[in-house]
């Protein structure tokens, strides 16, 4: 009896329970993919900086050769985005976008478990409380990566240009970055929802945070074009680090130190998952 139960026992069963709800209803998967795809297809394809600079630019009285305009344009783009291809820049941002949105939802499922009585059953079983929380987090990580993969494929179909010298290790690195971010955010939101019985307040928190987190990062534009007061927020925001890693690995553009980026994400993921596990012991049970 003493050592019969593994400390991680039930973790995979609980994760699988969440995943089953998801892969059994592909409609939800498709709906959740619409937003990033709309961003890519509508926004990404229309916000074409390269053609804005080059097509039909004709200043009266000045006779600048087209070649010089093109060169200036590509230098400006490179200085800002690290690449002349804004669409690919945005596509990497969309990978973290879908990961962020999926992770923010993890708090909702614990609220529903509480409201529907499932949680009170789980609490009477010998499954460690931390595993109830980590199952939600693991589920969120797996979902995020699957959805990010679909977004990546669609982005490539729409014209995203990967680094020609891409290695499998680069792809692994990109996924690791997304997984770490998902782990941190999912832990944070599950922790926030531990005592909550109101899914409305969870929705409110989600809606309050998703857009600011997106726009206070380098997902759509580089940090250096931000006003001075937004920059510090962007440098705290894990999305900035994920995008920096993924643009280096997937697009081959220059960026900050990969080691520092990964370290930051690792610390982010560990702190919040440890917090979630610790608090689950105190707050998951009824008062």
């Amino acid at each position: 009896m003493e050592s019969r139960l593994h400390p991680l026992h039930g973790l995979w069963s609980l994760t699988n329970r969440e995943l089953a709800k998801w892969y059994k209803v592909p409609v939800i998967l498709i709906i959740s993919l619409i937003q990033p795809i709309v961003w890519l297809a509508f926004f990404g394809k229309s916000m074409n900086f390269a053609s804005m600079f080059t097509s039909g630019l004709n200043i009266p009285g000045l006779n600048v050769p087209k070649q010089i305009i093109d060169e200036i344009a590509s230098e400006v783009l490179k200085a800002n985005f690290g690449t002349t291809d804004y669409f690919s820049f945005l596509a990497v941002g969309m990978l973290s976008f879908i990961t962020l949105f999926t992770s923010l939802q993890s708090g909702m499922s614990i609220v529903w478990d509480r409201r529907l009585g499932v949680l009170s059953k789980l609490l009477t079983t010998p499954v460690p409380r931390g595993n109830i929380v980590m199952a939600k987090v693991l589920n969120s990580m797996i979902r995020s990566l699957v959805q990010a993969s679909i977004v990546l494929v669609i982005a490539i179909l729409l014209g995203m240009k990967l680094n020609p010298s891409l290695t499998p290790l680069d792809v692994v690195g990109a996924y690791a970055a997304l997984a770490l971010m998902s782990m941190g955010f999912a832990s944070l939101f599950v922790t926030l929802a531990l005592r909550s019985t109101s899914w409305e307040s969870q929705m409110a928190i989600m809606n309050l945070l998703n857009m600011p987190l997106m726009f206070a990062s380098n997902s759509f534009y580089p940090v250096k074009s931000m006003p001075w007061w937004l920059k510090p927020i962007a440098y705290i925001n894990p999305l900035t680090y994920v995008n920096d890693i993924n643009r280096q690995l997937l697009l081959g553009v220059a960026g900050h130190s990969l080691l520092l980026d990964f370290t930051y994400l690792l610390i982010f993921a560990i702190i919040f998952s440890a917090l979630g596990i610790t608090l689950s012991w105190r707050f998951l049970s009824e008062s």
Partner: peptide
């Protein structure tokens, strides 16, 4: 073993899946 007053089964899963889930949680 506990049979609470309220319904605690996961509505999105089948009866069988619910039983197997709880069994797994007991190891």
């Amino acid at each position: 073993g506990v049979v609470p007053q309220e319904y605690t089964a996961d509505e999105d899963l089948t009866g069988w899946e619910n039983l197997m889930l709880i069994a797994a949680l007991y190891g």
